[in-house]
Every structure is written in structure tokens, then in C-alpha cells.
Computed example of a mutant assay.
Amino acid sequence: MPSFIRKRITSFRYAFQGIATLFRETPNAAIHLVMAIFAILLGLFFPISATEWLAVIIVIGLVFALEAVNTSIETLSDFVTKERNESIKKVKDLAAAGVLMATIAALAVGILIFLPKIIELL
């Protein structure tokens, strides 16, 4: 097997290890996973369009991606120093804000797509 392909396989293995670490060690990622599964189940229960599925998939991916970046920043920051440092606090707060903004956007997408369908069902 050529070296290029071996390196790509190895890089995917590392990425999947990162996903496992994210869900094993980050409580918020587990909460996001439950909500993502709930959104997918709602999408299967209610007939949603391909465009609506795209929106749901994109915001789910965005939240998980930003949670992974946030967790990596927090892990690296904690490795650098355990002492209180205003610059590191600012970086960690900004990374957490990114996750929060993505989560709010995901919630808005969910409300826009599913609330009318839920109201119609009632």
C-alpha cells in the first residue's frame, strides 16, 4: 500500500479517535448528541423537505465541530497552565461563545422547521 494512502488511513483513524474522545470526555457533546438524535427523529416523524434536512444536518455538524474545537482549545489551555490567566480565559470564553452561537442557530432552525408541524399536528 502506498505511503500516501497509509497516511490518509492513519489520519482518519486519529479523527475517529478524536470523535470518541469528544463524546467520552465532554458532557456537553453528549447533550448535543441527544438533541441531534431528537432532531433526526422529528425529521423522520414529520415529512421534511430535502432543504430542511440540509439545514438540520448542517447545524448539527456545526455544533459538533465547534464543540470539538472548543474542547481542544480548553484542553490545550489547561495543558499550558492551570493558573488563572486572563488571556487564556478570554480564549476559552470566545471558543465557548462559538458553540453557544451555533447551538442557538441550531435551535432556531429546529423551531422554524418543526414548530409549525407540531402545531399542525395538535
Rank of each mutant, 00 (worst) to 15 (best):
E67G: 02
F46S: 07
D93E: 07
F4S: 13
I19K: 09
A36T: 03
I88G: 06
V56C: 00
L62I: 09
A29K: 05
K89F: 11
A36V: 04
G98N: 00
A15H: 01
M35Q: 14
V80A: 00
I57C: 13
F45Q: 13
L41A: 14
I104Y: 10
E25C: 05
E83V: 00
I31R: 10
A68M: 12
A15T: 10
I88Y: 07
F12E: 12
A15G: 10
L76W: 13
T81Q: 00
I37V: 14
A97H: 10
S11L: 05
P116Q: 07
L94G: 00
P47F: 12
I111F: 01
L44K: 11
S11V: 05
S49L: 11
S72Q: 12
L44I: 08
P27I: 07
E86D: 09
A108Q: 09
K90H: 12
I48F: 03
P2G: 14
L112M: 13
V56F: 04
H32I: 11
G98T: 02
K89P: 00
G61K: 04
L66N: 10
I73D: 05
A102C: 02
R24T: 14
A50C: 03
I9K: 06
S11N: 08
T81E: 03
F12T: 09
A50N: 12
R24I: 12
I48D: 03
E74K: 12
E120Y: 08
R13A: 15
L112Q: 10
N70A: 10
A55F: 07
E74R: 11
L22S: 02
R13Y: 15
M1C: 08
A20L: 13
K82D: 13
I113Y: 07
K117M: 06
A97M: 13
E74F: 09
V56A: 09
K90D: 14
F64G: 08
G98V: 06
Y14D: 15
F46M: 10
E120P: 03
L41T: 03
A108H: 07
G110K: 01
I58C: 09
I118E: 01
